[in-house]
Design a protein around this nucleic acid. Structure first.
Length: 287
DNA sequence: AGGAGCACCTGGACGC
DNA sequence: TGCGTCCAGGTGCTCC
């Protein structure tokens, strides 16, 4: 399930193939994903050169020579494949490429051509084409909070954004207006590392603890990006597509298992908040 | 206005 | 084995 680190891993994997490449043979296989594709989507990509690939929160931004930016959100199960091979795989079985492939195209870079596929079984992903100068003001981006790995994200920012909030800290951190790009997994992991209870009201977390939280959010994301990088290297080195990477989490998905903290006798608990599973250690995360 | 709840979608896990 | 049920979850919508 792609969260920010997985999207960043995919970005880095696409970069050498797409940047500077001309898009050809673009094929769109259905009218919609989560939302309808833009009008004349394939025609507007055809022949364009990808100037660079950026990322904002969990969105990939392919900046095109045509003045438009091709925006892709991977949703839950969106994935790019290069020449039919999986890119940036995380703890999931190899996909059946083809069955759910909704977009395919070729990236021509000098004399080499790479076939790129986009598959998305659950179709929670979506794509857009936005004039490059209007990306920031587009509804998908206008209200987004700061990048958790950027300079604007800090304990002070959290203190300001969460002041007076009675909503619990777990659900608040999932709010993309407060910080953009955190999903369920890394919010659980970050709260665990910061020893903050997911149940506590966001506005009641003290400033020093928010400083810690901001720091561990960066750590947890950077660790995952690093792991993703090694996944990509393994993937590139692997013959026959072996070597899928099983990302390790301290609490996520570990209900009933012992807490991994030194000396803690706690057991990881699953609690549902706003319809989402929260995994946490009630012994370590007391307030 | 902020927050809660739900729709969207499919595959995998699990129980009988 | 096969069928039914539940669960995963990011975003955007509706409703209070």
């Amino acid at each position: 399930m792609p969260e920010l680190p997985e999207v960043e891993t995919v970005r880095r994997g696409l970069q050498p193939v797409l940047e500077g490449a001309r898009l050809t043979r673009v094929q769109q296989n259905r009218p919609d994903l989560r939302f309808p594709f833009p009008e004349r989507f394939a025609q507007r990509l055809e022949g364009a050169i990808v100037e660079r690939i950026d990322r904002r929160a969990k969105y990939l931004l392919m900046v095109l020579s045509t003045g438009e930016t091709w925006v892709t959100h991977l949703g839950m199960t969106g994935r790019f494949t290069l020449d039919g091979e999986q890119l940036g795989e995380f703890a999931e079985p190899a996909p059946v490429v083809g069955k759910h492939e909704h977009v395919s195209l070729c990236a021509v870079h000098g004399k080499s051509t790479t076939r790129i596929g986009f598959a998305d079984a659950r179709r929670f992903g979506f794509m857009g084409l936005i004039p490059t100068g209007e990306v920031e003001s587009h509804p998908w981006f206008a209200a987004l909070g700061p990048e958790p790995l950027g300079n604007r994200f800090s304990g002070a920012h959290l203190a300001e954004a969460l002041a007076g909030k009675t909503q619990n800290i777990k659900v608040s951190l999932l709010d993309q207006r407060i910080v953009a790009g955190l999903g369920n997994i890394y919010v659980c992991e970050a709260l665990y590392r910061a020893r903050i209870s997911p149940l506590v009201a966001a506005g009641r977390v003290t400033k020093p603890r928010l400083e810690t939280l901001a720091a561990v959010v960066r750590d947890v994301l950077n660790d995952a990006i690093e792991a993703g990088g090694s996944t990509l290297r393994d993937f590139a080195n692997a013959e026959g597509g072996q070597g899928y990477f099983q990302h390790r989490f301290d609490v996520y998905g570990r209900e009933g298992k012992p807490c991994t903290s030194d000396g803690c006798k706690g057991v990881v608990k699953r609690t549902v908040q706003a319809g989402r599973s929260t995994f946490w250690c009630p012994a370590c995360q007391k307030r």
